[in-house]
Design a protein around this nucleic acid. Sequence first.
DNA 1: TGGTGGTTTGTAAGCGCTTACATTTGGAGA
DNA 2: TCTCCAAATGTAAGCGCTTACAAACCACCA
Lengths: 342, 342
Amino acid sequence: MTSPERNPVPTLADVARLARVSTATVSRCLNSPDQVVDKTRARVLQAVSELGYTPNFGARALAAKQTDTVGAVIPTMENAVFARGIQAFQEELGRHGKTLLIASSAYQAALEEEQVRALVARGADALLLIGYERDQWLYEFLQRQSVPTLVAWSHDAGREQPAIGFDNKTSMAELARLVIRQGHRKIACISAPTVSNDRARGRVEGIRLAMSEAGMRADDLALVETPYGIENGEAAFRTIMAEAPGTTVVMCGNDVLAMGALRAAHAMGLRVPDDVSVTGFDDIELAMLAEPALTTVHVPHREMGRRAAGLLIQMLRDPEAVESVQLTTDIKLRRSLGPADG
Amino acid sequence: MTSPERNPVPTLADVARLARVSTATVSRCLNSPDQVVDKTRARVLQAVSELGYTPNFGARALAAKQTDTVGAVIPTMENAVFARGIQAFQEELGRHGKTLLIASSAYQAALEEEQVRALVARGADALLLIGYERDQWLYEFLQRQSVPTLVAWSHDAGREQPAIGFDNKTSMAELARLVIRQGHRKIACISAPTVSNDRARGRVEGIRLAMSEAGMRADDLALVETPYGIENGEAAFRTIMAEAPGTTVVMCGNDVLAMGALRAAHAMGLRVPDDVSVTGFDDIELAMLAEPALTTVHVPHREMGRRAAGLLIQMLRDPEAVESVQLTTDIKLRRSLGPADG
DNA sequence: TGGTGGTTTGTAAGCGCTTACATTTGGAGA
DNA sequence: TCTCCAAATGTAAGCGCTTACAAACCACCA
């Protein structure tokens, strides 16, 4: 740790020497203070502060075989949704004396694998991962390493992998039903790439499901996939309007894409919702501030983060006895969605 | 690491045994492969994958005395500004084979100290901190531990602490001059808490500086301090309008507060910029999307993050030879700022 | 064939900490 | 004052890895 020689960083042994006790006593002072008599403890603590001693985490982990550390791999911090959820996750972990290690995968499977290995190597006692979709061997690896793993932002009752989240398909289907009830028949969708992203895929499927239910052909959905980003949403919107003229509503896989759609519509001189309706997903702050305000699916990101922490801590205690939890989402009906006939 | 017994996690020794070589050879295979003859290496690698071996980071750090890890303590991930900068920071670090450990302090000094200790204990070879302002002993502690530390999001030519950032005061002063040139004389400011936040304080001082230059009394600035958050910005705006009637421009310490101001103005039936102008700081995505679009100070967050990584790596090589770098900001003049007379 | 010197591999000593187990200590009770 | 036992402290064996240093190996040349 820290650079080579220079001023040698004080160690447990230094403290012990200065306090005239054994290293075991110093260790106990730090980890289970009430096993040490007051006078000794005072002397040790004095030495600790005199030397400015900080325990070496690596050594401690090595000896104690546990790190009180939890790891999380998220696609990107730039997505407010994750930033918010993870912040809550971290706060709750902190409350339980755990530390969070964060890594980001930029939505790339290979990078995610690498980060998972890195976190495990660093001794993460447990892991939070986003969505189910990843190579099976990764799950096996984690199992072999006995690292309890929780999936978040997704929930599929059919899987046994512990998870906390909501059913992306169901949530989006609900919104789509509402859209259809408003009379929309020419529906388009701007989605995040669905390859290796079960959340994005679920949302698209949700729309198709609602269409089928309504007697429409699911294949009629005009679909454009594009990476995260407002500009991408804009471009996608233009593509849709060019390739699927007559579209009356554009349902977006997330709020950021929807913001792009809104902007593009505005730039193209289309009125929302009179000429075309737009919906989002996530309900980030932006959604309410948009002009017109965005109809979207509200996801309790903070709650999810907070409860994910609780679940993970529970898994650490008893890896078997965990129940996945399904959160509910609700629709925020705002001005960007109107009836089909304008 | 990982849970107690259960299925024992494979160690270097296990690999060595399976490959019929010494642990030293396995270690070399992993760290300096070309010191090992091909045939042996193949055998070892085979064993590694057969066992699903992952090196134990703690042990490695302990033995090798370096971690290739850099730590960062930011106020909160929920602030898009930091999320963006840190993302770039991380990407650049990754390019150099370094790993990033992130912690957040929720703008609380005590928490920051704690997190710094935690990161150092975890063996962070270097640290990124936001702004200069913190207890002197923390700097001393870091020096004693020989942990090179870089300050970001601030730059004060007068300090010798290595930093990368911009001069908050100068940048805001520039915007304030523009505001004043537009004829504004009744100026108000909504700022983040200035206690232990040199960035916020610098921005306020910038406004005062420009006022003095223009022959106005710096004390006439109507100032409200409030924590980060749109709602807080809204409340602050109402306070200002109540306590400093006649205010023609509200300059905000950051874009999020400005968004709140914009909303409050809208809710109060005030037209922006006809009845009152609003400005922000940071130029986050929201600024451009706001209605009306927000006049603000553009800060190159991504570039800052990227270059911060470069600097830190340089400091790791030669802790002495680092030059602080001052980034330049520029004003984005958008519709939310208009002349004083409406 | 033996000697030479560079490669490849092995040996073993830690890195800083925790913890089982052994030893010492200090009172309470007799 | 002397026992005796629980509480406090010390001793020392690792935890999994890296790396000096030593040993073994392998051409290659004389």
